[in-house]
């Protein structure tokens, strides 16, 4: 059921730098399950700069709201909590994966076969990425 990935990422800052400051890979957005209008997003964010990047918000025109969440399983109990920010360490990465940190995309608008995610740091767009749902799924 894993969706194949087709993505077009573009860093919106530091044009001309040898490496983009923020790079996304292994992006997967789950398709909304019938009866539910929400999705989850999983990916790896790589920070190529010497400064910590805090992702404080994510916007998607295909969803009414996007939040950064973290699932933890402690003593056999699964808990999901909203995070205020996604901290991408300097010259490091943060992994969003099943059973851990993830994007929760809520109240999907109908009829979309692609998802655009715009990552914000202190209100400023720092990365935009498109994800296309495969037609054979």
């Amino acid at each position: 059921m894993r969706l194949s990935v087709a993505l077009l990422a573009s860093a919106l800052v530091a044009c001309g730098a040898p490496k983009p400051p923020l790079v996304i890979s292994e992006l997967e957005v789950t398709e909304p399950i019938p009866g539910r209008n929400m999705s989850a997003g999983f990916f790896v964010l790589r920070n190529n700069t010497a400064e910590v990047i805090n992702i404080t918000g994510v916007y998607s025109p295909q969803f009414a709201r996007v939040e950064i969440h973290e699932t933890t399983v402690t003593d056999g109990v699964s808990r999901m909590r909203r995070l205020d920010a996604l901290v991408v360490p300097a010259h490091g990465s943060v992994v969003l994966e099943r059973g851990g940190k993830h994007l929760m995309l809520m109240q999907a608008h109908e009829g979309s076969d692609a998802v655009t995610l715009q990552f914000l740091s202190a209100g400023t767009p720092v990365l935009s990425v498109d994800y296309v749902f495969p037609k054979d799924n």
Binding site: A40, H69, T71, S78, M80, M104
Partner: peptide, 13 residues
């Protein structure tokens, strides 16, 4: 629960 976007669909999968 069905509003659970992560651990529930993952477990059922």
């Amino acid at each position: 629960f069905t509003h659970c976007p992560d651990i529930c669909p993952t477990t059922l999968q």
